[in-house]
Amino acid sequence: MRAADVPYEKITAKTFPKGQDSLASGHRACQGCGEVLALRLLLKALGTDFIAVSATGCMEVCTGTFPQSAWRMPWLHVAFENAAAVASGVESACHVLRKKGKLPDKRFPVVAVAGDGGTADIGLQALSGALERYHRDFIYVCLDNEAYMNTGIQRSSETPFGANTTTSPVGKDSQGQNTWKKNMPAIAAAHGIPYVATASPAFHLDMMNKIRRAAAIEGPAYIHVYAPCPTGWRMKPELAVESSRLVVNSKVFPLYEVLDGHYVMNRKVEKPIPVADYIKPQGRFRHLKQEDIEKIQQRVDLEYDKIVRLSEAFPV
């Protein structure tokens, strides 16, 4: 069956799951953390009948300090760079144990969760291997807060151009991060896997339905989630959802899906807000000059246009 045709139970405003969260309160994420919000909603969409695997990082540290855990499903953390490899092992084990009758004959996903560093930098090799090997019930979620926040806001390959971090500092000869954000969804899609999606917590139903769809589709899935970090972005703690709305409405982070190589633009931004309005509440961009912002705007328009054209050229 085509990935686009695989049925799954959609969450609507009316059917939003009101029961107990799959991620318990009492975790130690910062005030207003957009990453833990995304995680909470993604897990809520799946319930608790699945296995979660975490890479080392903010989410792992703040949810799993002995003797407590926030996770209400079986959860495993091993190390930083290998969430995809660990999840590969779990998925293969569950598959073979099911086949041998040692587990009930019912599919469930194995969900690997990692940050941008654990995905795009140190974890890229393990992720590429896992996607290429085509594990059946494998979902990889990158919660992208655009720097190494757990260790103190160091730049990663997902840090956007111009952002001030502790290792891409603004100085006499530096305007902050001097490279463009690595396009992880494109890299994931290049593996030819059945499902790739981007998501943002402000569009919570879209995000939650994407992980449900990923769970329903057989074969590896990659979901790249925008995860605002008020602490690391020098932003007011109440703005996580607001910024995850602005990032989409400014075309900086287009919401789209790639189903068997066919592109769907989930949210066409007809009247985009300027990039300048998106970056304004974030202290990490405070130093940028008009010409820098114009440069970013051009790049944003180009990248957004590529996805639009792909969705027109290769529709579902």
């Binding site: 296995i51 695997v53 495993l76 091993v78 190390a79 760079e81 290998n82 995809a84 490899a85 660990v86 999840a87 590969s88 092992g89 779990v90 998925e91 293969s92 084990a93 569950c94 144990l97 040692k102 090799q125 393990a126 590429s128 291997g129 290429e132 090997r133």
Partner: peptide, 20 residues
């Protein structure tokens, strides 16, 4: 599992063994 490195081999083994 034809993993892409020994690091992933042992990582996958830990995941597999932890899954029983």
């Amino acid at each position: 599992i034809p993993v892409e490195s020994e690091h992933s081999a042992m990582s996958s083994c830990i995941g597999s063994s932890a899954a029983g």
